[in-house]
Amino acid sequence: MATDDLIARLAGDLKPVQPDQVGRRVAIGFGASLAVSSLLMYFWLGLRPDMMSAVWTWPFWVKLGYTFALSLAGIWAVKRIAYPLGRIRPHLVAIAMAVTALVALAIGQLSMMPPESHMPLLMGKSVAVCTLYITTLAMPFLVGAFWILRGLAPTRLTLAGAAAGLAAGGLGSLVYSFHCTEGGMPFIAIWYTLGVMGPALIGALAGRYLLRW
């Protein structure tokens, strides 16, 4: 019977599983994409020219904290959904909470500033490109996340793709925040968040087809 041959072959091929092999794969996948995406940002867009002074302003750190929180929750969600039966509701709740916190901050800033400053806070100077650039910088991460998942065992492919997209969007916006000079909270709450949701949507749509195993 062919199944017996297969069993013999698989048993012959057995190598011990390293502790936390999954975690290692996640680290390699996202680490490699971080290198690609950062280089892409550096040579294509460049660091923000006022980098040295920007690190002394609070919007820089809010942007960094927000995108970092989204990235972390996204990476964890990818790791969890890579297991059969993996559930990621807590991760999605964490992402929703981060978005809610930033929206609250944005509303607070709008309410404290005079009405004529509202449009600049919402639109900044780079509204036309922000979401698009984030989505582009997220693509290496999306490829990396799909590579991670394809070697593991996600059983809900659309959800797994969405998790990959959220992680990619979070990491893409993290990388982009080193280029972007915007400091208005409403701007970040809208356009950064859209830049994260775009890759999430792409991931969810592509997951069904590209994550099959």
Binding site: I7, R25, L152
Partner: peptide, 29 residues
């Protein structure tokens, strides 16, 4: 399907978590 599942079990055995029931992991796959 049996052979396909055995292959998957083999290549993805790193996703079995030692503190969870083996059968539920197997059935999910």
């Amino acid at each position: 399907l049996v052979q396909d599942t055995l292959m998957a079990l083999h290549t993805r055995r790193a996703t079995y978590e030692v503190d969870r029931p083996f059968t539920s992991w197997l059935h999910a796959i």
